[in-house]
């Protein structure tokens, strides 16, 4: 709660700053906790429903916690033409969850985005904000295997 207070202070408790405030909360917690929304509504004195509308309208907000790794497949036009959809399908098979969901073990959040502004290198996949240009299903499987192995190795060391 103190952190939220600090974020509100950074901008000022005014309506015009609420989107920035929510963006910073999202950046800090990787989602918008319900309490945080209620706190902001109370401090900025705007109806809770307005915040809830904002939180569900814009892409960058999420009301549920994210996984340890966030995988984003670009489905912008360039990436779509070069096979982005196939990457989505491949990930659905690999992870066993659908786009927009979190794996049951909480390891991977799987999302799609529409253009990350590097279309010349389509199709792109972002894993934890790192760009993987000119992705193929093969390469994707390999990267996933590496992430999984890294975790196993970490767990093996007590």
């Amino acid at each position: 709660m103190q952190e939220i207070e600090a974020i509100i202070e950074r901008y000022g408790a005014q309506r015009r700053h609420v989107i920035s405030i929510l963006q910073d909360i999202q950046a800090r917690f990787h989602y918008l906790p319900k309490d945080a929304l209620m706190e902001v509504a109370a401090r900025v004195r705007i109806p809770l429903i307005d915040l809830y509308s904002i939180a569900t309208f814009y892409n960058c907000f999420s009301l549920l916690p994210r996984g340890e790794h966030v995988i984003k497949v670009c489905l912008g036009t360039a990436c779509h033409l070069k096979g982005g959809t196939r990457l989505v399908e491949a990930l659905e098979r690999e992870l066993g969850v659908r786009e927009g969901e979190l794996t049951p073990d909480g390891r991977f959040s799987f999302e799609t985005v529409r253009c990350v502004g590097a279309c010349a290198l389509a199709p792109l996949v972002l894993i934890d904000e790192r760009y993987y240009p000119k992705m193929t299903q093969r390469k994707l499987t390999q990267v996933l295997a590496r992430l999984r192995r890294a975790r196993q190795a970490a767990e093996a060391v007590p």
Partner: peptide, 9 residues
């Protein structure tokens, strides 16, 4: 009252 509103888009 501002009790209800639109969600999602």
């Amino acid at each position: 009252a501002h009790a209800i509103g639109f969600v999602n888009r």
